[in-house]
Write a protein that binds this DNA or RNA. Structure first.
Length: 177
DNA sequence: TACTCGATCGGA
DNA sequence: CCGATCGAGTAA
């Protein structure tokens, strides 16, 4: 059996805790030609609820954010700056819009690079992340000590205002100094 | 319909 | 520092 993460975990744990928990898990991609590639997640960011002024759900329920209002365990993929596809994992129970941006995996630092490296685009929006279809997550047993995971402010959200910029909802494995 | 601006990146 | 490049969201 593949160690695929369960949807229940993604719907019950809190958003920020899940963003931290996701570090060390593996993002597994099955390309259209059947080939598979797995990369460890090394950087994430949490976006939680309509109150979070940095979250797309701050405008409420719209065509784009609809997927975030469904149950956790599916992908939310959107286009940013007209160029970059951004990969997010929807988490939480229904009607609780929240998502985690995958900002980095082994060999690809930056959300735009992650999707480019694994050929991910909006065709995967709303697709399940908890079964071996096109893209899913596995727990392959990697455990990083808390001291190796750094929490810091989210990137590129200055429009959200100081209160939300200050939240340390970005997680990444510390570079080996 | 006419704006504005973005959860970024690569090049100058 | 700046341009790319397009669609979501707002205002009208």
């Amino acid at each position: 059996m593949r160690p695929i993460i369960k949807a229940k975990v993604l719907r019950t744990k809190k958003t920020v805790a899940l963003a931290r928990w996701l570090i060390g898990k593996h993002l597994v991609r099955r390309f259209p030609d059947g080939r598979e590639e797995a990369r460890m997640i090394v950087e994430t960011e949490a976006y939680h609820g309509e109150r979070d002024r940095a979250c797309h759900a701050r405008f409420g329920r719209t065509r784009r954010t609809e997927v975030m209002y469904g149950p956790g365990g599916v992908w939310y993929v959107y286009l940013c700056y007209g160029i970059h596809e951004m990969l997010n994992l929807v988490v939480g129970p229904p009607d609780s819009p929240a998502a985690i941006l995958i900002r980095g995996v082994e060999g690809a630092s930056g959300p735009g690079r992650v999707t480019k490296a694994l050929a991910i685009n909006r065709a995967l929006n709303a697709a399940p992340a908890t079964e071996p279809s096109g893209l899913w997550i596995e727990d392959r047993g990697v455990r990083w000590p808390p001291a190796r995971v750094e929490a810091g402010p989210r990137v590129g959200i200055s429009y959200a205002g100081p209160v939300w910029v200050a939240k340390k909802w970005r997680f990444r494995i510390k570079p080996v100094a």
